Structure formats: C-alpha cells, structure tokens
Simulated assay, not measured.
Amino acid sequence: MAFRELIDDIDEAVFDTLGDSAQIEGRTEPVLGMFSAPWKQPAFGKVQTAIREPRFEIRLKDSDGLSRGLRVTVDVPAFDGGGDYDLLQLEPNGNGLVALILRKRP
C-alpha cells in the first residue's frame, strides 16, 4: 500500500470521528473538515500566531470544483464561530489537505 493511500485511510478515520461539517454552495452533500476561528481559540500562555483568517481544512479530494466567492456554511455553534462565510482562497498544503480561507458574511 502506498503512503498516500495510508494517509487517506487515516484522514478518513480522523475526519469521520472528529470532523466538523460544512455545506458548500453548489454541493448537495455536506463536506467534513476541521474548522478553526483563531479569534475564538482558547489562550494558552502568550503564543502568537500569524493565522488570522477563519479556515476550514478539507481533504484534497473534496476540493474539486471549488472556487473563490462560494458560500461556506460551517455547522458548529455560533458561539464557536459557526455560520456563513465567503470562500476567499484555497491553500493546498502538500499533504493531501486544502485550507479554505474564509471571511465571515455580514
């Protein structure tokens, strides 16, 4: 079994167990990913990161056909940053995941 196939199996298990759900404009089925809203993160010490935009990390295979401007509705409680976002940019990271960089819709 190739390395990428092993990683796909691991990602499948992790996303199915721990993933957040989002509805992406034009898709009939929700997409599983990992949502992060940096302004909502708990503060541990004084660690500063350069990450400011909300992001939704998805598997590369789920990113086909996505483009800037689509609506992404993240299904987590509003208190944790859930709601409607615009897709600003796609950032593949080279390990089979793509970060959807988001901006909160007014």
Rank of each mutant, 00 (worst) to 15 (best):
P77N: 05
V47Y: 00
G81T: 10
L100I: 00
T17L: 11
K46V: 02
T73W: 06
I24V: 11
L6F: 03
V98Q: 02
L88F: 00
R68I: 14
S67L: 02
E53G: 03
E5K: 15
V14C: 09
V76S: 12
A43T: 09
Q48V: 11
A50L: 14
R105I: 15
R71S: 12
D20H: 13
P42M: 07
L102E: 03
A50H: 04
G83N: 04
V14R: 02
V14E: 06
T28C: 00
V74R: 04
E91F: 13
R59G: 08
A78T: 15
F35P: 05
P77E: 04
A99H: 15
L60E: 14
G33P: 11
L102P: 06
E5T: 10
D8Y: 11
R68A: 12
P54D: 04
I101P: 05
G94C: 02
F44A: 07
L97V: 15
Q41F: 04
E91C: 09
L70P: 06
V74P: 01
L97C: 13
R71C: 13
R4Q: 14
Q89T: 11
R71Y: 10
V76C: 07
P92Q: 04
L6H: 10
G19Y: 00
V31G: 04
L87M: 01
R105S: 10
I7G: 05
Q41C: 02
T28M: 05
A50N: 05
P106K: 12
G19M: 03
